[in-house]
Amino acid sequence: MSTTPALLKPADPADAPPEPAAPARSVWLRVRPVALPSGSLLLFLLLWQLLAASGTWSETLVPPPARVWDAFVDVSTTHDGIRGYNGTTLVEHLGISLRRIGLGAGIGVVAGVVFGLLMGTVGWVRSLFEPWITFLRTLPPLAYFSLLIIWLGINEEPKVTLLAVAAFPPVAVSTTTAVAAVPKQLIEAARALGASRWDVVRDVVVPSALPETLTGVRLAVGVAYSSLVAAELVNGLPGIGGMVKDAANYNNTPVVLVGIIAIGVSGLIIDGLLLRLERVAVPWRGRA
């Protein structure tokens, strides 16, 4: 009478070792988007503290992180009877500058999209305006800011105009390039089905050009942000760029760094929101 060898017996599922609930690689992939930026920030703060403590430069030039934090608290609150910086808190300074950027960049983006569509669809319009847009794109903001002050005064008009002019070329160029790159087969197919010129632009050209146009919008907002301090050089208080400029006049480096960090962080948030909008508006990008 033969017996089944032990090695040939079917394994009991209850005897199998339990599988790990979450493999280490899966956990790392989930925490990496937060861990890497946090780690780089901590490393930056450590190097900053070591550099400030080394004594190579005075605290006026390289203040330690603690002094910058104290300056952040001072400009964000009321202390010793003084409200924020120059009577305005950091949030209010930033809000006023964001309003200027929103208005100026908004005008520049709308104008850039309109001109981009015209230049991409009408050949003679592109030949007429493209050299001027390229010329404008190569000019630094400070090159024409003084002229805007002469024309428009020192109030809000030159600041908003400067930001609009800075934001206009990236959107116009990206939209023009995107419209010109729309496959001709799609346009011809739409016309063969009886679509009018407006139908072709609305249903074929705009959806095809939208991804590159949104990229141009992100670039335009970035250019407007980089022009913020220039826009607030004259009569910029209240405003975050004006605060930075005024603090620099008095060698108040901690407040200057607070303003720079506030501009950078708010810029990151806005760029993230625009990226989110791009993913919602053109979910097919990168998949088709």
Rank of each mutant, 00 (worst) to 15 (best):
G106Q: 15
W28T: 04
R287Y: 05
L193Q: 08
D12H: 06
V206Q: 08
G241I: 06
A11R: 06
A224E: 12
N252A: 13
N249A: 06
A164S: 05
V73H: 08
T177P: 00
P141C: 10
A6H: 07
G286Y: 04
G153M: 12
V27T: 07
L94W: 07
P140I: 03
V73N: 05
R137C: 03
L90V: 14
R25C: 07
P211L: 02
P183H: 04
P17G: 11
A190D: 07
V165P: 00
Y85P: 14
A105Y: 03
D199T: 10
L7Y: 10
N86F: 15
V182G: 00
A166V: 09
I149Y: 09
A195S: 06
V160L: 08
V179D: 01
P64E: 12
A190W: 10
D199C: 05
W284I: 06
F44K: 09
F135G: 02
A248L: 10
Q49F: 04
P13K: 06
I133Y: 01
E188G: 01
V204R: 00
A111C: 15
G102D: 08
S196F: 01
V217N: 07
G242F: 10
A281E: 01
G194N: 15
G112K: 05
S38N: 05
T175W: 05
Q49M: 04
E156A: 14
V62N: 03
S196Y: 01
G120A: 10
R197S: 14
A192H: 13
F72D: 05
L219T: 10
L103K: 03
L36T: 09
E188L: 12
G267P: 09
A35N: 01
K184G: 13
I261M: 11
G236R: 02
E130M: 07
Y250N: 10
L98R: 13
E59Y: 13
E232N: 01
E232I: 00
G106P: 01
A6Q: 09
L98K: 15
P131H: 00
P63D: 14
D246S: 14
L233K: 15
V201K: 01
L98E: 11
P37D: 04
A195W: 05
L275R: 05
L274A: 13
Q185G: 12
P169S: 10
V110N: 01
G87S: 12
L219S: 04
H79S: 11
S226Y: 07
L147N: 09
W69N: 15
K245S: 14
D74Q: 03
W198K: 15
A288I: 06
N86P: 15
A111M: 03
T253K: 07
S97C: 06
I101Y: 03
T134M: 11
A181R: 00
V256Y: 12
P18L: 11
A190I: 14
T77E: 13
V200P: 15
T4D: 11
R279G: 11
D12N: 10
T134K: 06
L47P: 00
E19H: 13
A288S: 15
